[in-house]
Amino acid sequence: MRIKANDSTLLVIDIQERLLPVIQDGESVLEHSGWLLRAAQRLGVPVLLSEQYSKGLGPTSARLREGIAAEAILEKLEFSAARSGELFKLPGGERGQFIICGCETHVCVLQTVLDLLQRGNQVFVVEEAVGSRRAADKKLALKRMRQAGATIVSREMVVFEWLEKAGTDEFRAISKEFIR
């Protein structure tokens, strides 16, 4: 199955100010997630953010939150962003495909992915844009998500599938700005 721009939503899970410093390669996770977020915005793909107990973990990193409307942010206490059903009421939450990045791979990302799959959504997890405190936890979570039916992808795989072809104005703009 291919990722379609008009059927997918980018879900950025819990990349929060106080959590990010303890995430292995957290700066890289932030950079890759930001790149994907900007590409999604450029192509008109909805972007949703979730925040796990923001009172304790702080808000989403300012580098990601800029330009995101308040109604596209899900405050949560449950580890899964999908369990309560509130995610699906947000703009873009009704779409069939979810592109996932965020923290922690083995907790909130994993539980969200499992709930989305159980609901019948197609789920694509961006490997370089998810992180955990320990590499072993990330590796196990990715393996479990793959076994459950999620597709593990790279950020460029996502963007090239959103684009579908070269030679368009969108391709030239994305290529110039994002593909180096």
Rank of each mutant, 00 (worst) to 15 (best):
H32Q: 15
F88R: 04
I23M: 10
I179E: 01
Q118H: 11
P59C: 00
G149K: 04
G167N: 12
K89P: 00
R155N: 02
F178A: 05
S28I: 10
D25E: 12
I68V: 13
V109N: 09
E127C: 08
L116W: 12
G167F: 15
R155S: 09
V153G: 09
G93A: 08
A148K: 13
L10H: 09
K139Y: 06
L117C: 09
V153I: 13
Q147P: 00
V158D: 01
Q97C: 09
R2D: 07
A82G: 03
I68Y: 01
D7Y: 13
A148M: 13
K76L: 09
R180H: 10
G26P: 09
V22Q: 04
V113R: 09
R133M: 10
I13V: 11
G92V: 13
A129R: 05
R2N: 05
H32L: 08
K176P: 02
E177Y: 07
E104W: 15
G58P: 04
G67R: 15
S54E: 05
E66D: 14
L10I: 06
E170G: 00
G67W: 10
E170I: 05
L117N: 06
R2M: 10
L36K: 00
L20I: 15
I73H: 01
S50P: 00
T168I: 13
A70I: 09
K76N: 07
S61V: 04
E17M: 03
